[in-house]
Amino acid sequence: MDLFPSSWTALRTAVADTPDEDFDRPSGCAGWLVRDLVCHLVIGAQDVLITLVTPADGAPTADAAGYWIDDEPDGGEGPPDALVPRLAAAYGEPRWLKFHFDDLGAAAGRAAELADPAARVSTAGKTLTVADYLSAYVLEWTLHHLDLVAHRPAAGEPPAASLAGARTLLERIAGGPLPAELSDKNALLIGTGRRAPTERERALLTGCDAKLPVALG
């Protein structure tokens, strides 16, 4: 949970610093332009706000890793991926998409700061502590930060602590550690199928207990 503020702030800053002309360029999410990805982040910020005000009475049914296991792989609760580009296009100029994301992003960040880590919330049919829910989102923000700057080498990447924390959670989801020789960034990209391993990396992964690529629910 301690990594949520820094990962979220870094991502919000990266979106704000993205030139308007880059919104029509590809992102690291297959099939999505940068504007589509930012629209998805708007939906993510809404989800954080909604979830943090949706208390649950029962015992937790999932932790940060379990949050990412899709119990209904053929029917998620979020909007279909195909809808996101249409929503993104409806914003027109990038400045309006940036404005909406910044507005919701600030509110989501503030709500996370004020939330009780031990409180329980409900989302996607699961009950989690606030701490586990926000920890799960560190992986989301870090991966999408990498997606945002995937084709912009000069852009700032996620903080080192966020990369390390996201990798640790990904390894828990995958069921085993990834080779220490892989940097945190490369472990995340390869581990989620965002890029194929090189021949050397494939050799390092031989005998790895982790089940790759990880499909995040």
Rank of each mutant, 00 (worst) to 15 (best):
E140F: 04
D71Q: 10
G109F: 07
A112T: 06
S122H: 15
F99R: 15
Y133H: 09
P177E: 02
H145A: 04
L128D: 09
A124L: 15
T54G: 00
L178E: 01
L83H: 06
A164G: 00
A65G: 01
T129Q: 08
A88M: 12
N186K: 02
Y137G: 11
R167P: 03
V53K: 05
K185H: 04
H151L: 05
R172K: 06
S135T: 15
L104N: 11
P55T: 02
A107L: 13
R167Q: 01
T142V: 10
G76A: 13
E93H: 15
L169E: 01
D147T: 07
K185Q: 12
L134A: 08
L188G: 11
L170E: 03
A89D: 13
L182W: 04
T129E: 11
D147Y: 07
A119R: 05
V138L: 09
P158Y: 09
V121W: 06
G78E: 13
L114P: 04
G109S: 07
H151Y: 13
D70Q: 09
E72D: 15
L143A: 11
I69W: 02
A166Q: 00
A166W: 01
D103N: 12
A108F: 02
I69E: 07
G176S: 01
P153S: 03
G92Y: 06
A82L: 13
G58Y: 04
A64R: 01
A56S: 11
A64V: 03
F101V: 12
R110C: 09
T168E: 07
W96N: 15
S162D: 08
H144N: 08
V121F: 06
G156Q: 05
L163K: 02
A65I: 02
A88W: 05
G58E: 10
D102H: 07
W96C: 11
A161H: 07
Y133R: 08
D63R: 03
L87G: 12
V149R: 08
D74L: 14
F99P: 03
R172M: 00
Y91N: 14
T61D: 02
D81W: 06
P60H: 00
A160Q: 11
E140G: 03
R95M: 13
A174E: 07
A155E: 00
H100N: 13
V138G: 06
G58W: 04
P80F: 04
R172C: 00
K185S: 07
A154T: 02
D184H: 08
T61C: 03
A131V: 09
R110L: 14
A124I: 12
I173M: 03
D132F: 06
D103R: 15
G175E: 06
E93G: 13
G105S: 09
S135F: 02
P60M: 03
F101S: 13
A119M: 04
D184E: 03
D132S: 09
D71V: 04
K126C: 10
A131D: 12
A154E: 07
F101W: 11
K126D: 08
A174R: 08
N186E: 12
H144I: 06
P80E: 14
L87S: 10
E157C: 00
I69P: 00
D102I: 01
V138I: 08
H144V: 06
N186R: 13
F99H: 15
P158I: 09
D103P: 00
A131Q: 11
A164S: 05
A90S: 15
A90L: 14
A161W: 06
P177Q: 04
E93T: 14
G109N: 07
A64W: 00
A112W: 03
A88V: 11
Y133V: 10
Y133G: 09
A88K: 11
A160C: 03
E77C: 05
